[in-house]
Write a protein that binds this DNA or RNA. Sequence first.
DNA 1: CCTACCGATCGGTAGG
DNA 2: CCTACCGATCGGTAGG
Lengths: 193, 193
Amino acid sequence: MRERILAEARRQFATLGFGAASLRGVARAVGISGPSVLYHFPSKEALRDAVLGDVLDHWQQHLPAALAAARGKEGRFDATVNALVSFFLADPPRAQLVVRELLDRPDEMRALLTARLAPWLSVVTDTIREGQARGSVRPELDPEAFVVQIVTMAVGTVAVGGTAASMFSMGEAPNERLAAELVRIARTSLFTG
Amino acid sequence: MRERILAEARRQFATLGFGAASLRGVARAVGISGPSVLYHFPSKEALRDAVLGDVLDHWQQHLPAALAAARGKEGRFDATVNALVSFFLADPPRAQLVVRELLDRPDEMRALLTARLAPWLSVVTDTIREGQARGSVRPELDPEAFVVQIVTMAVGTVAVGGTAASMFSMGEAPNERLAAELVRIARTSLFTG
DNA sequence: CCTACCGATCGGTAGG
DNA sequence: CCTACCGATCGGTAGG
C-alpha cells in the first residue's frame, strides 16, 4: 500500500502541484481513508520528501543502464542523448515533479541534487574535457554550462515542451520532432567540424 | 491598488504556486483586508487569469523592442539570443509563473500562447527558412522545433537554471555562464560552417 | 488500517 | 474599501 500511495501522490503532486493536492485526494484515489495516509507517512511534508526521494532513486537506478545501452552503438553520442530524452519522455510525471520541486524549494533541491548527481556529472564533464584535449570537442565550449543546458532542454521538453509544440501546430509526433532537434542541437554544438 | 495586487499576486503565485498561495496572503502583503481583493477581482481564478494576462502583455510590449535593439549590432544573432535571455533573467518571477502555468493547465496555456505568439513565431521560422535557402543556416535544422528548444532553454535557465548551476559549484555569475553557453549552443547549431 | 473529531485556513458572500 | 461571517476543506490527532 505504501507503494500505491507513493505512486498516486507522485501523479497528483506532478499534475496539481503540492499545494493544490490534498492527502484526502490521494487517499480516495487509492481506496483508503484520509488519515490512513498518515499511518504510512508522518506528515504531508514527509510524503512529499518520500515521493521526491523515490523519483531520484528511480533515476539513479535506471538512468545509468539506459545510457550504458547506448554506449556500444555507432553514433554513440546521439544514442546517449536520445536515451536521455526517451528516458524522461517515458514518464512525464517524474520530470514534471522535479521541475515543480525546483520552483517550490530551490534551496533544498540544490542540496539534494548536488548529493545525488555530483559524481555522475563530473564523469560527463571530464569526458567532455578529454574530447577538448583530443580536439574532437569544440574548445570554446563550457563543459558544466553545456551539461546543464542539455539537461534543461531534455527535462523542459518533457515538462512543458509538448504544450509549446502543439502551439505551433507541429503536426504529428511533436515530442519526437523536439527530441530529434534536441539531439541535433546537442551534437552540432558539441563536436568540432 | 489594482496594480499592486497584480504585482504581489504574480510574486506569490511564482514563488509559492497558485494552489499554495492565498488571497489573504496577497491582501496582507499589500496592506488591505482579505475580501477586499475580491472587490478588484471577482475570484481567485480571475486574479490568476489577470496575472497571467499581465505577464503576457508585458512580454508582448517589451520583448519586441529588446530584440529590435539587437538588430543593428554586429553579431546580430548572438545579440538577439542574448537579449532574449537577458530579458527573461531581468525578471525571474514572470518566467517562473509561465512555467508553473504550463504545468498547471497545459490546455489553456496552449490556446493562450498560440493566440499571443503565433504571428511572432512565424516571422522567426520564416527568417530561418530564408537562411536555409541562402545556405547560411544548416539545412537539416527543424525550424519550429529549433525555436521551441531555444525558448525552452532560455525560460528554463531563468526558472530552474540557477539551482542547476549552483549544484555544480559553478562559481560566480552562474547565470551569465549559462546564458553565454546558451548563446554559443544556439549559434553553433544554427549556422553552417 | 478505521471513525470521529479538532483548530486553522480557505474562497467567497452580506451588508454597509 | 471595511467587518462579520458562511460552509467547505485542509493537515493532523485520539482512540481503537
